[in-house]
Amino acid sequence: MNITELEEMARKCRVEICKMVHRAQAGHPGGSLSEIDILCALYGSRLRVQPDNPDWEDRDRFILSKGHASPGMYAVLAEMGFISHADLETYRVKGGVCQGHVDMKWCPGVDFSAGSLGMGLSYGMGCAIAAKLDGSSRNAYVMVGDGEIQEGSIWEAAMAAAHHELGNLKLFLDCNRIQNDDFCETQMRMFDIPAKWNSFGWAVKVIDGHNMSEIVSAIEWMDSITDKPAVVIANTVKGKGVSYMEDNPAFHGAAPSDEQLAIALSELGVNA
């Protein structure tokens, strides 16, 4: 897909995210909207996967470690054809493939059962080691949130991945600056995040996580790094694309009302 097509895919996914969370009257729109441009760029321009054969052994892996931002993942999986758009209506519904947090046992195309923060990078490391043992060129891509790196286990994984020189492990850090209770700055200051990753032995690049061209270039940059793990630190806006959700801690984990949904859809270019 070219940049314009990726941007259109992201717009459609944003619409689905708002609809899903509204329908369920629960879920996490803010982090889904902040991550969605990166997810669309990755799936639409790079990831080696087969939607009609989701368990293909030699596929690239994508691990959404911030598993609460599942609406974003489900919207992308529907756009890619792993699941149907009708499946999106099962978000948080009994028996549905779209469980509250992404779950590999429930949803085709989901590579990791997340929901507890700080776990996906370690899992991605295991996938990356397996790829090396297999002599495969497949990569493991992981996405974590910025609040998530407050979990100590993230740094166990960061240190171990660099030690093992896992050039096939790629990390996106969705820096939307807001966590569950409040702004990260209030909850736990993280100081110089790029310097931290750099000091752990990772290749580091900082980008605007909503500029599609920058994201696509950053993915190409990541793939050019083969001797160490690489992290793209993406500055994003929580709730991006919906005015009243943007940069608003209240929409980390809250659903829009009927009126709010109408506003969101209108802002996202959906004709009433």
């Binding site: 052994e57 590999m104 590579d111 990791f112 700080g118 776990m119 370690s122 899992y123 991605g124 490391m125 295991g126 996938c127 990356a128 080691i129 397996a130 790829a131 043992l133 297999d134 493991a140 100590g152 286990s153 166990e156 994984a157 240190m159 171990a160 030690h163 093992h164």
Partner: peptide
């Protein structure tokens, strides 16, 4: 070549194992 040192990091070790198991290995 088939031994992974996880350092003194048990939380990471368990999930590295999970990633390997999901990729067909027996950790």
């Amino acid at each position: 070549e088939r031994t992974v040192s996880c350092g003194i990091g048990e939380q990471n070790m368990l999930l590295v194992g999970a990633g390997l198991a999901s990729s067909g290995y027996i950790p």
